[in-house]
Computed example of a mutant assay.
Amino acid sequence: MARLSKEDIELILQMKISGKSSTEIAKVFGVAKGTVNRHLRNNNFFNSGKLLQCKNCNKTFTHKVNGGTVQKFCCHKCRCNYNNKNRKIKVKRTCEVCNKDFIANKYYKRICSDECVERKKEQLEIVKNKKRFKNRKIKLYKTECKYCGNRIISKYRRSYCNNLCSDKMDSKRRSLRKKKLKKCRNCSVWHHRVGFCCSEYCMKKISTATNRDYSKKRYQIARENGKFDRGITIERLMKRDGERCYLCGDAVFF
Rank of each mutant, 00 (worst) to 15 (best):
D8S: 07
D8R: 05
I9Y: 04
L13M: 05
Q14V: 05
K16E: 03
K16C: 01
K16V: 01
I17E: 12
I17G: 05
I17M: 10
I17H: 12
I17T: 13
S18K: 15
G19V: 03
G19S: 04
E24N: 09
I25A: 02
A26W: 08
A26R: 09
F29H: 04
G30V: 13
V31T: 09
A32W: 10
K33A: 06
G34Y: 11
N37L: 06
R38M: 01
H39V: 02
H39Q: 01
H39W: 11
N44S: 13
N47M: 06
L52Y: 09
C54T: 08
C54E: 05
C57S: 04
N58P: 00
T60V: 07
F61Y: 09
F61L: 02
K64P: 07
K64H: 12
V65L: 15
V65T: 15
K77G: 08
C80E: 11
Y82V: 02
N84E: 10
K85T: 06
I89A: 02
V91L: 13
V97L: 03
F102Y: 03
K109A: 02
S113R: 06
E115T: 12
E118S: 14
R119V: 14
K120N: 12
K121C: 07
Q123D: 08
I126Q: 03
R136K: 09
K137S: 06
K137I: 07
K137H: 08
K137W: 04
K139I: 10
C145W: 00
Y147I: 03
G149A: 01
G149H: 04
R151L: 14
I153Y: 14
R158W: 04
N163G: 13
N163I: 13
L164F: 04
L164I: 05
D170R: 15
K172W: 11
S175P: 00
L176G: 01
K178D: 04
L181V: 00
V189D: 02
W190A: 08
W190M: 12
R193T: 04
C197S: 07
S199K: 02
S199A: 03
E200N: 01
K204T: 00
I206A: 03
A209W: 11
D213E: 13
K216I: 14
R218P: 10
Y219H: 13
A222F: 14
E224Q: 11
N225M: 14
F228M: 01
R230K: 14
T233K: 13
T233A: 08
I234E: 05
M238L: 11
R240S: 12
D241Y: 13
G242W: 08
E243M: 13
E243D: 15
Y246K: 13
L247C: 05
G249P: 15
A251S: 08
